[in-house]
Design a binder for these strands. Structure first.
Lengths: 237, 237
DNA sequence: TTCAATAAATTGGTTAACCAAAATTATGGA
DNA sequence: TCCATAATTTTGGTTAACCAATTTATTGAA
């Protein structure tokens, strides 16, 4: 019975257009470096409204694939067609991501972030991280979940790393991390106290400028989360 | 004379609105979990058109900060206000990034990507990577720059890592990397041949399942780019 | 024939009106 | 008084028309 149902087409008009723009590129009707057809023509040809075309352009622009010049036209980025094809295919399905990959990537970013933070932190950075730690402690004392305060501590470390790209990537995956935290209820009272101790240890390493130590403690700190993700996967499988 | 000129206000209406929405949150007129005022009210209150409000919402939605439900309303994500404040401030200035951070982060992502690829690659992955390598070789023989083919090789490795998030983050920074490549003309004939040998060595490690080796060779491979970035910085400073 | 001035067409940016689904309120029968 | 139902309002989604800057075509005098 159930197998007769089809997956509902949740693909938005915008995604459809992105797909079609890719086809234009694939069929060499649209080459790297030259101009996209005007929005009106595109809308007309694809049989959709201009609003949706604009939406698609905004999204591709966000990824650096397109570049629009007011009152002039939309240019296909200098990036080569070969790479473009691969890129656009993924932009569409980029939004959703699996838990394991998320955690794995987080560990990678955070261990390096902690290391760099220890090497480059200023007194101001230390003050900010301390502030975040105190805010977390207060929430834990009140018995609250404090997921945001937890993450804020980590974000402040990313900020102290002085690597803007690393911080940006952290910001991008942060909402997903929080959602997973809430969904799987990773945190309870006991965990929170351990987390606090871990955080203290990490901060200490950063203050001392001990990059290797900060990286190591951070990795151990996140190991619990990794283990948890493994157990969840095992449960599902 | 020159100091009398002001920096032109290149802040788009959308960015202005994002800033104002943050203010709404900061002043606790808008709390985590509850609904954003309807688009019309917001547009009215901020004195802008609904289109711009929608643009701002799309952008914040992209970052997981907002979530719109058709015919119902736009919800502020479960993420706490504390973190939200920090996040939104950065969303605005997220787009631009510095070269050093970019390269540094790339090395981090790629070394881990290569390691995971060596551990998890399927025969299909190897075939894909080989194909990218051949495409690169052909461009080099022709004497072309082959920046895209180079990047494509790296993207295929990211794909073989089976870590969707890592690959996504690679995709996000790829356009910036390409732009910097073109801007600084990192590549010439001699470099290209060395790059090809490096790529071959990396592929060999991946085929053999040698994670540590793949990671190491990848790091050395990217070291040249790192050095180059350092020299550029030194030149500017 | 050449080229500057001007008019027309084209561009992305913006606005306001309309649509259908959902939430809310009003209504009336039990 | 209560609750199911219908009318109304409110919501985000969509469309089409308008705007100003730019580019292209036209025109006419040198």
């Amino acid at each position: 019975m159930l197998e007769h149902f089809h997956e509902i087409s949740s693909e938005t008009p915008v995604d459809k257009i992105i797909r079609q723009i890719r086809d234009l590129i694939t069929s060499s009707q649209l080459n790297s470096g030259d101009r996209l057809p005007p929005e009106r023509k595109l809308a007309d040809r694809l049989g959709v409204s201009r609003t949706h075309v604009r939406g698609a352009i905004r999204k591709l622009e966000f990824y650096g694939i397109l570049k629009t010049v007011p009152q002039s036209g939309t240019l296909v980025s200098g990036i080569g067609i070969t790479a473009l094809e691969g890129l656009i295919t993924d932009v569409i399905k980029l939004e959703k991501s699996d838990f394991t990959s998320l955690v794995e990537t987080r560990v990678i970013l955070e261990t390096h972030g902690a290391k760099l933070a220890a090497q480059r932190r200023t007194p101001e950075d230390i003050a900010e991280i301390k502030k975040a730690l105190v805010a977390y402690e207060q929430q834990v004392i009140k018995g609250n979940s404090a997921v945001e305060e937890d993450l804020m501590f980590h974000l402040k470390i990313a900020e102290a790393s002085k690597n803007t790209v690393l911080k940006s990537l952290m910001l991008i995956i942060t909402p997903d991390i929080i959602n997973n935290f809430i969904q799987f209820k990773v945190c309870d009272d006991q965990t929170n106290k351990e987390v606090f101790k871990d955080h203290q240890a990490i901060l200490q390493c950063i203050i001392e400028g001990d990059g290797a130590g900060a990286s190591k403690v951070m990795e151990e700190h996140l190991k619990d989360v990794v283990d948890f993700s493994q157990s969840v996967i095992a449960l599902i499988t």
